[in-house]
Simulated assay, not measured.
Amino acid sequence: MTIAVSYVTPAGGAVIATVSPVGLGDREAGRVGFTTSLGFPKKLERILRDPHVSLAYHTREHGYAATDSYVLAQGIASVDLRPSPDRLTQMMKASEPFLGKTKRGPVWDWLLREYHQERVFVDVDIERVAVWPDLAARGETSITGTAWPEMPAEQRPPRNGTDPRVDVADVARRIAALPHRMLAYRGADGFPVILPVKVIGHDSSGLHLDVPPGLLPLGGRRAGFLAHAFQPQCIGLGMRTLTGWLTVTDEGALYAPHTAKGLAAPPYKTLLTVSNGLMAKYGLWRARRNGTAERLQELAAGLAS
């Protein structure tokens, strides 16, 4: 129903957020995917510049999976900035079992035109799949594809220091009601590694984490953090995304947040649908006004050549 997606930053960090993949993928081709919007140009630009992307299937709430395995898929992404009408139609049909029947009618068609027809597809050709027997990512790991790499080297601290730059107590308060907590860092082979974690305390130095054993490299590094919750059909959700500095020692893991952003959606389908439609219209208008769409097309064409 909802997965965590991570991509890397130019500074060697990782950003992590949630998407609803609505079953998009091609098993025979070894490909999975998701959709996004031109209203999130930074994400698209970073994926275009460095296509190492990871997807974590980390929760089974409100979905159809038959197992409780934690699955991490890592691969090379390609971005379809101009999907065909047929592909958009197929995506809308695929989404209904997960997100509910699409609203129809003259007013709804106008309101949701940009939300449905101005989507961007991110396709990920899988290079590695790691599976753990439970959603806590503990126990023996099964690897399909390329071998799991060595642990990455410690990173150089940022120029402005590694201490928290936002109020840690406020962050802890805001994520208290968000049960799914994920951490992402850039692995030695360039792919983000996404892991479920628990927050076991906090103080002025950061969030103290309980992490799966043997999966975090010792030392300090840039890392992304995600906390989120969602209800059936994603009607009502909350998300908090952080960037910051992760320090891992033999005694434990400490996460010092540097930035924090939040998102909340109302638990009412009509209100949520109206909100999605209006945000999509505004996002596309802004993307056209500031040249985002053209810039991404030029970037994609330049990288392809």
Rank of each mutant, 00 (worst) to 15 (best):
D250W: 02
P158K: 11
I200G: 04
L195G: 07
E150D: 15
I235M: 05
A300L: 07
K101D: 15
T273G: 01
V197K: 01
W245E: 07
A17Y: 03
H58S: 08
V107S: 06
P257N: 09
V107H: 04
T36N: 07
V274D: 05
G33E: 08
V53A: 00
A223I: 12
L237Y: 09
A137F: 07
A293Q: 04
T273F: 03
A280P: 08
A136C: 06
Q74W: 01
A77E: 03
G190M: 05
Y70K: 00
A304E: 05
I175R: 03
A264D: 14
D125F: 03
G302W: 14
E298P: 01
D189T: 06
G244V: 14
A65T: 14
G39D: 10
R27P: 03
V122C: 13
G23Q: 00
R156A: 14
Q297T: 09
L271P: 01
R113Y: 12
H258S: 14
V53N: 08
A304G: 10
S54H: 13
N290W: 06
R240Q: 13
L299D: 02
D50G: 04
Y57F: 14
I175H: 03
R222H: 15
L254V: 15
F121K: 00
A29F: 02
C234G: 10
S6L: 03
V32Q: 01
